[in-house]
Design a protein around this nucleic acid. Structure first.
Length: 423
RNA sequence: GGAGAGGUGACUGAGUGGUCGAAGGUGCGCGACUGGAAAUCGCGUGUACGUGAUGAGCGUACCGAGGGUUCGAAUCCCUCCCUCUCCGCCA
């Protein structure tokens, strides 16, 4: 959510952001309702002041034994008017709040303006996207043949778009999770957290998934809880409605979680294998930082995610998302794509975003500066570090051998009981 | 799920209809005292919104959340949420 004062002061910047991001938000209505509300507040506050002063007088009169009935009946009328004002204002506030929640974050000036993913800008590449063998095979073939993947079983259990790892496949998944968590906690300075995998509406609204993306989420109808689409939701909400001590910043968390996504509207895309599924594991990094440092923190966050791929020896590229591809809540975002030779594609394994104070304002996450100044909103960032199935695809496809084995990257071997290959 | 107790400011803890944004204490900040410190004393110490010049000031709201009663609610009534204790159930 943006600061209403900011929207009021610079509506053109907000209009441009809405257009550049390809979002829809009724800014004009928001502005006019805001103006209407402020006028009502002035009137209502005057009446309330009258009520407060008169109530005090009534108390005094009664104490002295004077007759206050005339003033009381006067105030009865004032109170009724106040009530009417309050109701109108509450209605306006609800509508303003609902509208404000649909206004997207404003892209950072360094973000290229563009329509869709074709306008994203390549920042850097690492490694050589090579063919590990003459005709590299896709992960689903390799996985099935080695008996580490049983997709028909997952379909029996939950339907298409779910995964069932078996034996060394399951171990590989677990090894990747532990490897990533270890690197981020021991070398990158993150504190590991393990959070609920369901979250309520407030938490979902705080990080910006709601109200826009309700259709994309699994919801439990009896309790109105949502299966989290990313650990960003629970981890960011750890500090909802708090004022953090400025000396504590930056706060860096990393957590593993499964992620649940209905992928509504993406039917027919990437239907084979593990590329696009309804449930996947992910290690997620989240930072709470002072506003001045958030763009530096975005660079280091991205570097932390890249480090995982480098240690795994997987070629990747980093892109800056253009305005049209930038998510609703983000001000700037880098996507990291890993090379997958079997499917012959770059797979997005991480999205590293700076939300500036957009999520913090929705979630009420503030900090008190060390110099004792007024509390301000923190900047929040998050990035995958990394998404598991696609990383696993990259490992399996890059490390496949011509005779159908899969070598284990050196960095993972300690987590695979020293195993050098799956055969 | 059942029974009971309770949710007040950074913390602790008063407050059962008006003088309460809220006593007292702790903590924190500034000052005095001191060679320096401790102790002691004095002053100060919430957030949001509106108004105003994004100042001073003024106003309004906030005592778990939302409704209600009343001229007036932290205080009374209703609903919900959360915490604690006991019982039941359960990994």
């Amino acid at each position: 959510m943006l600061d209403l004062k900011h929207i009021r002061n610079d509506p053109d910047a907000v209009r441009k952001a809405i257009a550049d991001k390809g979002e829809k938000a009724d800014l004009e209505r928001l502005l006019s309702l805001d103006e209407e509300l402020r006028a009502l507040i002035v009137e209502a506050d005057e009446l309330k002041q009258d009520r407060n002063v008169s109530s005090e007088r009534i108390a005094e009169m009664k104490k002295k034994g004077e007759d206050a009935s005339e003033l009381i009946s006067q105030m009865r009328d004032v109170s009724a008017r106040i009530k009417a004002f309050d109701e109108r204002m509450a209605g306006l506030r609800d509508e303003i709040e609902a509208l404000a929640l649909t206004v997207p974050n404003i892209p950072h000036p360094s973000v290229p303006v563009g329509k869709d993913e074709d306008d994203n800008v390549l920042v850097r590449e690492w490694g050589e996207p090579e063919e590990p063998c003459a005709s590299p095979r896709p992960h689903w073939e390799i996985g099935e043949e080695l008996g580490i993947l049983n997709l028909p079983a997952a379909t029996k259990i939950a339907g298409s778009g779910f995964i069932c790892f078996v034996g060394l496949g399951a171990l590989l998944e677990r090894a990747l999770i532990r490897f990533m968590l270890d690197v981020h906690t021991k070398e990158h300075g993150y504190t590991e957290v393990s959070t609920p995998f369901l979250s309520n509406r407030d938490a979902m609204t705080g990080t910006g998934q709601l109200p826009k993306l309700e259709e994309d989420m699994y919801r439990t109808s009896d309790d109105d809880l949502f299966l989290i689409p990313t650990a960003e939701v629970p981890i960011t909400n750890i500090h909802r409605e708090e004022i953090l001590d400025g000396g504590r910043l930056p706060v860096r968390y990393v957590g593993y979680s499964p992620c649940f996504r209905r992928e509504a509207g993406s039917y027919g895309k990437d239907t084979r294998g593990l590329i696009r599924v309804h449930q996947f594991d992910k290690v997620e990094m989240v930072k709470f930082v002072e506003p001045e440092t958030s763009y530096d923190e975005l660079e280091s966050l991205t570097a932390n995610a890249e480090d995982i791929l480098q240690r795994l020896g997987i070629p990747y590229r980093v892109k800056t998302l253009c305005t049209g591809d930038l998510s609703f809540a983000a001000a700037k975002c880098y996507d990291i794509d890993a090379w997958a030779p079997g499917v012959g594609a770059w797979l997005e394994v991480s999205s590293c975003s700076n939300f500036e104070d957009f999520q913090a304002r929705r979630s009420g996450i503030r900090y008190r500066p060390e110099d004792g100044g007024k509390p301000g909103f923190v900047h929040t960032l998050n990035g995958s570090g990394l998404a598991l199935p696609r990383t696993l695809i990259a490992v399996v496809e890059n490390y496949q051998t011509p005779d159908g084995r899969v070598r284990i990257p050196e960095a993972l071997r300690p987590y695979m009981d020293g195993l050098a290959e799956i055969a």
